[in-house]
Computed example of a mutant assay.
Amino acid sequence: MGQRRRATSADVAREAGVSRATVSYVLNDTPGQKIPDQTREKVLDAARRLAYSPSPAARALRRGGSDVVLGVMGMTPIGTVLGYLLNSLTGKLSAEGLTFVLHLHGPGDQHLSEVRQALSPAGVVVIGELPEADVDDLERSATTGVVHLTATAAGASVPAPPGTLPVRAVLDFAGRRAAQLQAEHLVHAGHSVLAFAGYDDPAVQMATLGRLREQGVRDVCARHGLPEPLGGVVGTDLEGSTAVVRGWADAGVTGVCAYNDETALAVVSAAEDAGLKVPGDLAVIGMDDIPSARSARPPLTTVGFDTDALAVHVRALVRAGLGQGPVPDPADQPFARVKVRGST
């Protein structure tokens, strides 16, 4: 049996009893064209019946370029939140007729300008930390905006070389705001001496995120006139973690904001080892809302990220890089919220 022929816009036009121009206006949602609702529904129904989808070549020709959005990421472990974000971003871009392609870039790989030249992407999203030389190489070859989904040391705006977007780093805002939510939750529950449990990770990106999150907790303490939060690394080993947590308790700490849920669970274990009850003696709040947070004992209070909202924001940044809209303000999106459970 021969392969079924792919439906074309001409087939949709015949099925709907309209012109090909009308089909094009409806399926591309062309601005300035007043198509009656009844006609629009006829075209959409015909396209569904015929399983019509526009050809990638036609989309590229219409756009004047590729429909690929290139994601470039260093060899960093893909955790739960990042995995959900990449899945959601793929779907959001697909709804715009764009194909998201992720390139994992490691030391000694081909130059990013060569990767970009091979794919001729409509836009580029840099995810996480890359060596400065690689970023420079990528930006020198830029013909459209480069979106930086990364964390910066200053927690401020990403520089905007020619061809790139002058955007505030998305992870700066989302991560710092999530940490502020952690601290606000504990302060509103009556805790006045807080600690921040850091995570010992050699990755530059993780260390940068850790500093941003700790600063978010510091911001809240300063806003409420509370002492600066105590710091410490938890999770490397139980004995060391127990010593850190016992030291916090001796200093009057009653609430702990953790870098992420894994760190928070390590704090809970260390507290038990130190003879402290959670949440009776020590309230603990994590970040990321990983699946094991819900089944922990006690169930872990945490801050969960809305990865769909983050993906919508990144999609808007990509559109801005393509000249199809303004650069969005991250402050307009609630990227995170507290999930209250038994540990606070």
Rank of each mutant, 00 (worst) to 15 (best):
V217F: 10
D200R: 12
A179I: 02
D200G: 09
S269F: 08
A203S: 14
V204T: 14
A169P: 00
A222L: 11
A243E: 06
V233K: 09
P229L: 06
R168M: 15
V204A: 15
P161N: 03
F196L: 05
V220L: 05
V267W: 09
A271H: 00
A195P: 01
V170C: 09
F173Y: 15
T236N: 11
G210I: 03
A189K: 11
A251H: 08
Q215R: 11
R213T: 02
L276N: 02
A270R: 02
V268E: 00
P166K: 12
R176H: 05
E239F: 12
G163F: 10
L194S: 10
E228H: 12
A179V: 12
A266Y: 02
R211W: 12
A207I: 11
R211Y: 14
V278N: 02
A195V: 03
S241I: 02
A183K: 09
T208W: 08
G275T: 00
L194H: 08
L276V: 01
R223T: 09
H191P: 00
D261K: 05
V256Q: 04
A266P: 00
E272Y: 08
F196D: 06
G198M: 12
A274G: 05
P159K: 11
A222V: 10
H185M: 06
D273V: 05
L194A: 09
A169S: 01
Y259D: 12
P229N: 07
V170F: 14
L265G: 00
T164K: 04
D172V: 09
G252C: 04
A207G: 15
A258R: 08
H185C: 07
G198Y: 13
G240I: 07
V167R: 11
A183V: 04
Q180K: 15
G231F: 05
E214N: 13
Q180G: 15
P161R: 07
A264F: 11
V234K: 03
A249S: 15
S241D: 01
A222E: 13
G235E: 03
G163H: 07
V220H: 01
V267S: 07
R218F: 13
G190W: 05
R213K: 14
P159S: 08
R246C: 00
Q180R: 15
G163V: 03
D201K: 07
D201V: 05
V267T: 05
G225E: 06
L165C: 07
A174P: 12
S192C: 10
A274K: 03
R176V: 01
R223E: 13
G232R: 09
E214C: 13
H224E: 14
T254H: 02
L230G: 04
R168I: 13
D172F: 11
T208Y: 12
D261N: 05
A222T: 10
R223A: 15
A197P: 00
C221A: 06
M206R: 15
A179C: 06
V245R: 01
A178Q: 11
P162Y: 10
R218D: 14
L238Y: 02
A197Q: 00
Q215F: 13
V193P: 07
V167S: 15
D172A: 08
G240V: 04
V233S: 09
V244P: 01
V167L: 15
A207L: 14
Q180W: 12
S192H: 14
G235W: 06
A251M: 10
H224F: 13
D200P: 00
R246S: 04
N260Y: 14
R211C: 12
E214I: 08
L181R: 10
L265H: 00
C257K: 01
A243R: 06
F196Y: 15
T236M: 07
